[in-house]
């Protein structure tokens, strides 16, 4: 078991007039090596939840267990640093965390903080930068002269360079162009295939359907569903009650079926869908 939440509560600014109860008894288990989506309405507590995974926030009650490191309200694990290396967290709009003079320096900042030598860090940095689609000519450039999407790639590379076991991404593709978004997700999928746990916060159900094995649905500070992706999108009424759209393809199948077709809901790509439709028409 890689991640486990036991009745986790989180209240922001407790004991003040601004107190806000953002997590209300979250129970959650995520197995090692899954690619998992976290969805839910804005303000439902997704970002709050994921910040517990590397102990940026401590639960105000309950217990979080990350690969056998236990975090509770009272005791921080003695080595927070170890935990931060294990679980790499990419924030929403991470491009605002860049600060070094060159891209290379910014990417090796993380690994060096965790004790890598300059040479080790540099070789990992070159590798991850090419993974995110920035070639060697970028190494010595200033991160501040890049476009927004390129900055995002550098920031994500900065976390990948730490080689975390668990990769958590808060809306990593918001504001990227479609091709850029697809490249990023393909990259996360490849990382997942090397055995790492990947958790993605997303509002894009098409992405969730094509890339994630499991989905966690949050609503008003609680985890309401934690199921396989195909299972979730069968619950059409439940999703519309949360005003979550169906993925384009699922919604299309749904409409076909309302008009007399009997097509399998769990179809994920156009080819299979075309075959299924042809099958029905030829019957």
């Amino acid at each position: 078991m890689s991640i486990e939440f036991k009745s986790v509560e989180h209240t922001y600014s407790p004991d003040t007039p601004f107190a806000y109860h953002a997590l209300k008894g979250v129970d959650l288990k995520i197995k090692k090596g899954t690619m998992c989506a976290l969805i839910g309405h804005t303000g439902s507590g997704k970002s709050t939840l994921i910040q517990h995974i590397n102990a940026l926030l401590l639960p105000t009650a309950g217990e979080v267990n990350i690969e056998d490191v236990i975090i509770t309200a009272t005791d921080k694990p003695s080595s927070l640093k170890g935990l931060r290396k294990k679980a790499g967290l990419v924030f929403q709009f991470p491009e605002y965390q860049l600060f070094e003079e060159t891209i290379l320096k910014d990417v090796i900042f993380g690994p060096k903080n965790f004790g890598a030598t300059e040479e080790e860090a540099t070789s990992i940095a070159k590798e991850v930068l090419s993974l995110v689609g920035l070639d060697e000519s970028y190494l010595e450039r200033s991160p501040f002269e890049l476009s927004g999407g390129q900055k995002r790639r550098v920031a994500i590379a900065g976390i990948l360079a730490m080689e975390p076991e668990i990769l958590v991404l808060d809306e990593p593709t918001a504001g990227l162009d479609p091709q850029g978004a697809k490249d990023m997700l393909d990259l996360f999928k490849r990382i997942n295939e090397t055995g790492k746990t990947v958790i993605i916060v997303s509002h894009d159900m098409d992405q969730v359907l094509s890339y994630c094995d499991e989905v966690i649905v949050m609503n008003k500070g609680k985890v309401e569903e934690h199921v396989a992706t195909s299972e979730l999108f069968e619950k059409v009424d439940y999703l519309s009650s949360l005003s979550i759209d169906l993925p384009t393809i699922t919604s299309f199948i749904h409409q076909l079926n309302q008009n007399g077709f009997h097509i399998d809901h769990s179809i994920k790509n156009l080819n299979e869908l075309a075959k299924a439709i042809r099958g029905e028409i030829n019957e």
Binding site: Q51, N54, L56, L80, K81, R84, K85, G88, L89, V90, F91, P94, Y96, Q97, F109, G110, N113, F114, G158, I159, M162
Partner: peptide, 13 residues
């Protein structure tokens, strides 16, 4: 606070 958290995630104490 946001930037401190982001840098803390990169191992800054």
């Amino acid at each position: 606070q946001r930037i401190m958290k982001a840098q803390a995630s990169r191992g800054v104490e």
